[in-house]
């Protein structure tokens, strides 16, 4: 029997000019660490297909490692993109 681990939230601010790189950096930190990761999107106005791929990869990794990823302050346009790309269910959203 293992004791429940306390979760620590790590917040990553996503740089609007380097969305893919920021997401990639967040993904690296996700590896094997059972924490809640918060990606702060307030400065991001749009995502492109590459960013979408990164988010998908992030979601897959989080699924595998049982981590939760929370997207903070995602605007409704990006939320709609995630919905259309069938990714919205794989993240938590907070505003």
């Amino acid at each position: 029997m293992t004791a429940a681990m306390s979760k620590i939230a790590e917040i990553h601010k996503i740089d609007a000019n380097r969305v893919v790189e920021s997401l990639r950096a967040a993904r690296k930190k996700l590896d094997g660490v059972n924490v809640e990761t918060v990606l702060e999107f307030s400065s991001v106005l749009r995502v492109d297909p590459r960013a979408l791929c990164e988010l998908e990869a992030l979601a897959i990794l989080a699924d595998e490692s049982n981590d939760r990823i929370c997207l903070l302050h995602v605007n409704v346009q990006i939320y709609k993109v995630l919905k259309l790309a069938k990714l919205s269910a794989r993240f938590d959203f907070r505003n």
Binding site: V47, D48, P49, L52, C53, V81, L84
Partner: peptide, 12 residues
């Protein structure tokens, strides 16, 4: 997948 992603992004 490629097309779906492009279409999703295009909505912005």
């Amino acid at each position: 997948s490629q097309a779906r992603r492009a279409a999703a992004v295009f909505t912005q």
